[in-house]
């Protein structure tokens, strides 16, 4: 192996990966990088609270070993907006009360961000009737695509309302006919 220290690019900044191969991407973000916006809800890929974007795709950071992310670009909730400069998605979550306790929320938002990208790229879901056509962002599609993120407070209806709001103002997602 080379002598240079392995890094991953987290929110635009190169960060040295941990030395213990057991450390998950989630624990590395939370403990070593103090990026505690990414939450640990189950640690076994069963709740989605730990969702982050790796190379633009959403994954469960709890089930990935940090050392497997050399050179990867990682985006966490901290890169999406700040309390005094919320992204459109974050604003919509606040307006529609798309959360209660807030613990699943960063995961929901990261997941939603990537989900919209998947929609824009025309990815199908289990709700998509014709796999050869670009899917429309119907409520059923959105619910299926967000089902990897549990919310025990039961804010689901409000989360979908927030997503519909953002999608309605995003031309690239209206182009489902393309």
């Amino acid at each position: 192996m080379g002598s240079s220290i392995a890094v991953a690019i987290v929110n635009g900044v190169p960060k040295p990966l941990p030395s213990d191969p057991r450390r998950t991407l989630l624990d590395w973000l939370r403990e070593d990088l103090a990026l505690t916006g990414t939450k640990k809800g189950c640690d076994h890929g069963q709740c989605g609270a730990c969702t982050v974007l790796v190379e633009g795709r959403r994954i469960n950071s709890c089930l990935s070993l940090a050392q497997l992310h050399e050179s990867d670009t990682i985006e966490t909730i901290e890169s999406i907006g700040s309390a005094d400069n919320l992204s459109a998605l974050q604003k919509a979550f606040v307006t529609h009360d798309g959360f209660q306790c807030g613990y699943c929320t960063p995961g929901q938002i990261c997941s939603a961000k990537a989900m919209m990208q998947e929609l824009a790229e025309g990815w199908a879901s289990a709700q998509t009737q014709d796999l050869t056509e670009r899917p429309l962002p119907t409520p059923e599609e959105l619910r299926e695509r967000m089902s990897g993120n549990l919310c025990r407070c039961g804010a689901y209806s409000n989360i979908i309302a927030a997503l519909e709001d953002v999608i309605a103002s995003d031309a690239s997602l209206q182009g489902a006919q393309a």
């Binding site: 890929g45 989605g48 969702t51 795709r57 959403r58 994954i59 469960n60 089930l63 990935s64 997941s111 990537a114 989900m115 998947e118 790229e121 025309g122 990815w123 199908a124 879901s125 289990a126 998509t128 796999l131 050869t132 695509r145 089902s147 990897g148 993120n149």
Partner: peptide
């Protein structure tokens, strides 16, 4: 997501999309 799979082996795409969650399927 592969268009060849979706067009010619849709069963495989459907089965995969019925499994797990988008986050897990990405990994």
């Amino acid at each position: 997501a592969d268009m060849r799979v979706r067009e010619h082996w849709p069963l495989l795409a459907k089965a995969i999309l019925a499994g797990a969650s988008p986050q897990l399927r990405n990994r």
